[in-house]
C-alpha cells in the first residue's frame, strides 16, 4: 500500500469471522498531511468490514477534531487500504483452507 504517512493497524487478533474489528490509527509522518496536525496520539476505533465505509469513518475523525477537513482523503485512503488487506487475507485464508 502507498505510504500515506498515516498508519492503520489491527488492534486485536483477527479471527477471520467477526465483521467488526478493532483498528488503531496514528500519524507516522506529519509532513504528508496537508493541514496542521495536532499530535493526539493513536486513535483506537472499531470498524465493520461488511457495512462501513472507510471515508465515512475518516469524516467522523475530522468532525471529532482529530484531523482537518483537507486531510479526510488521506485518512480515508489509509483506512481503506488496511481494510482491503484484512479482507484479502481473510479471502486467502478461506480459499487455502478449502
Amino acid at each position: 500500500a502507498e505510504d500515506t504517512g498515516v498508519r492503520v493497524e489491527l488492534n486485536e487478533e483477527d479471527d477471520g469471522k467477526k465483521s467488526s474489528i478493532a483498528l488503531k490509527l496514528w500519524v507516522e509522518d506529519t509532513k504528508k498531511l496537508k493541514g496542521k496536525y495536532k499530535d493526539t496520539g493513536a486513535i483506537e476505533f472499531s470498524f465493520d468490514l461488511e457495512n462501513e465505509v472507510a471515508e465515512v469513518v475518516a469524516q467522523e475523525m475530522v468532525e471529532s477534531g482529530f484531523f482537518l477537513d483537507c486531510d479526510v482523503k488521506i485518512v480515508g485512503k489509509s483506512i481503506r487500504d488496511r481494510v482491503a488487506l484484512i479482507k484479502w487475507r481473510r479471502e486467502r485464508t478461506v480459499s487455502s483452507g478449502n
Binding site: A42, E44, V57, F66
Partner: peptide, 27 residues
Amino acid sequence: SATAQVVHSAGRRFIVSPVPEARLKEQ
C-alpha cells in the same frame, strides 16, 4: 492513564492512546 475517549455524534467511540513507540517510523 494516558487514554482518553471521544464519542462522535454518530455514536462511534474513539479511544486515544499513546502511539506504540516501537512502531514509530524511524526518521
